[in-house]
Amino acid sequence: MSEDVLKYWRLAALVGVGAALYFAGTHPELQPYFELDYLRSLADQAGMAGMATFVGVFVAGYLMQIPGMIFVVAALLGWGPIAGGLIAFVGALLASVANFWAVRAVGGSLLSEVENDWVKKMLGKLDDHPVRTVVVLRTFFFMNPVMHLPLVLSGVPFRPYIIGSLVGLIAPIAVISLSLDTVMAWLNLG
């Protein structure tokens, strides 16, 4: 099989798997499991099993393209700013790692093979400073699944990706942890 045909098969598989996961996440029977009330009740469960289950649901939900913010808020509401922040951080990091390996396994590094000059210029900046680029993207786009896909398909190696994610997730989770009570009170959601 030629390399061009393989690229198209990988792209088709990525679109198919991504669409299937997205539709699973938005399916009416599964959707209640990713709503704030359910996640909050899951977070309220005592013990390590509740935390592990919550992190597992976080990882599964992020694979289904559900924004990570809802999981972070649920962890903070369920366990408070310190423990909830740590659980949210672990869940966000594991969800990012799972998504990285899932996307890379199916789609490879398709964007690094694009022959467009603009794409090559943008990826050149990523190649020059991969950790810094991932830190900036994680800090500003946090757990947005839309940002994640092109980043993984760019061919960024796993080590810079995980280091950049570790550092880049700290500030957003800390800010959300420290300001959640204020925002909840302001919106009368407490």
Results as ranks from 00 to 15, higher is better:
S2Q: 11
Y8G: 07
Y8W: 15
G16A: 10
A19T: 14
L36A: 13
L39A: 08
L39Y: 07
R40W: 12
L42P: 04
A43S: 14
Q45V: 09
A46T: 13
M48I: 14
G50C: 09
G50D: 09
A52D: 08
G56A: 11
V57M: 12
F58L: 06
V59K: 02
A60M: 14
G61F: 03
G61M: 04
Q65W: 09
I70A: 08
G78A: 14
W79Y: 15
W79N: 12
I82Y: 13
G85Y: 00
G85H: 01
V90M: 12
V97Q: 06
W101V: 11
V103N: 04
V103G: 01
V106P: 05
V106A: 05
S112Y: 06
E113C: 09
L123E: 13
L123G: 06
K125A: 11
H129L: 05
T133E: 04
F141I: 03
F141Y: 07
M143G: 01
P145C: 10
M147A: 11
M147E: 03
V152M: 10
R159M: 10
P160G: 06
P160H: 09
G168L: 00
A171T: 00
I173F: 01
I176L: 08
L178G: 08
L178C: 03
S179V: 03
D181K: 11
M184N: 09
M184P: 03
L187C: 06
L189W: 12
G190S: 15
